Computed example of a mutant assay.
Amino acid sequence: MAPFDVFSCSDQVEEKRLRPFRRSQVLHRWLYTIGFADHTWTVDVDLSDEDGAAELYRDGLLHARGELPVAFAVPGGRVEVDAGLYGVTRAHLVRDDGEERRLTPARGTAEDLRGRLARRHPLLSTAIAWLAIAVLAVNLVLAVPQALELLTTIPKIADNVGTFTSPVVLPMWLNISLITAGALAATERVLTLRRNRVLDVETLWTGL
């Protein structure tokens, strides 16, 4: 996980109200919220913005804005936010005593819908989660060596580390299938804010 520099919130931010979430924004906008220190804090990450910054709202009014990854200072702690290719990978309140609380996805977001599925159909949810793990594990074994071979064809990289020949050679249709399945599996992991340092390295390949 990337280090978080604590961003001190300033009162010198523009007066701006939190926009309602629309279903048409489900692929590029993420909202997470939490009640803490007598206020409702909402994180808004919209990758359709040019800078892709995160915004922190206090009771519906803009409180601070910062580039990802960012940690917003709040009374009694901080709100840590980070995002990747497939969405928000971290949205946690870290109290001064070290206790962490995950923010709750706002109603109507893809993360909220995924959470409802987990509550209503826990067995199905568990099966989907394990299927995502299996797909990423297979891709880690089959696709990543090919990604390394591709990277070492870049002259500057080849000059420093040499070339690499993948022991795995797959037909194009299977490569495309693996990339598609990997992207879906990575999205599933992000929707539930799950991350593993080894397993989720594979998501770098699906983004190539």
Results as ranks from 00 to 15, higher is better:
115 G>D: 15
148 L>H: 07
51 D>M: 08
189 R>T: 01
15 E>Q: 14
59 D>S: 09
30 W>P: 00
8 S>D: 10
11 D>G: 15
105 P>N: 09
129 A>G: 13
64 A>W: 01
4 F>P: 05
14 E>A: 15
130 W>Y: 14
165 T>M: 02
176 I>P: 00
116 R>H: 12
54 A>N: 06
88 V>R: 01
171 P>K: 08
133 I>S: 05
160 N>C: 08
154 I>S: 03
153 T>H: 12
23 R>C: 02
114 R>K: 14
81 V>P: 04
82 D>N: 15
165 T>Q: 12
109 T>L: 02
80 E>F: 00
69 P>T: 03
7 F>K: 09
176 I>Q: 13
29 R>F: 04
65 R>V: 13
106 A>Q: 09
134 A>P: 07
15 E>W: 02
194 R>P: 03
127 A>T: 14
142 L>E: 01
85 L>Y: 11
114 R>D: 14
51 D>V: 06
165 T>Y: 01
11 D>F: 09
5 D>N: 13
180 T>W: 07
70 V>E: 05
151 L>E: 07
196 N>C: 03
84 G>R: 12
14 E>L: 13
70 V>R: 02
152 T>H: 09
124 L>K: 06
63 H>M: 06
178 L>A: 02
125 S>Q: 03
197 R>I: 08
127 A>C: 03
205 W>T: 15
139 N>E: 10
169 V>M: 03
5 D>A: 15
175 N>F: 01
103 L>Q: 03
104 T>W: 03
114 R>Q: 14
206 T>C: 08
66 G>Q: 05
109 T>G: 04
76 G>V: 09
87 G>A: 12
50 E>T: 10
48 S>I: 00
150 L>A: 15
133 I>T: 14
119 R>F: 02
95 R>I: 00
175 N>D: 12
199 L>N: 09
50 E>P: 10
76 G>A: 06
12 Q>G: 08
35 G>N: 10
38 D>E: 15
25 Q>M: 11
149 E>K: 00
144 V>Y: 01
185 A>W: 01
161 V>H: 11
192 T>E: 05
135 V>E: 03
8 S>V: 13
55 E>G: 04
96 D>K: 11
48 S>R: 14
58 R>P: 06
65 R>E: 12
109 T>S: 09
208 L>S: 11
3 P>E: 07
193 L>G: 03
56 L>T: 09
79 V>D: 08
44 D>Q: 08
58 R>D: 01
176 I>N: 11
17 R>G: 12
120 R>A: 12
35 G>M: 05
128 I>F: 06
153 T>C: 02
39 H>Y: 10
192 T>C: 01
100 E>K: 15
136 L>W: 05
184 L>M: 13
51 D>I: 04
99 E>T: 14
84 G>S: 12
96 D>W: 07
52 G>F: 06
166 S>K: 01
142 L>T: 04
193 L>I: 05
145 P>S: 06
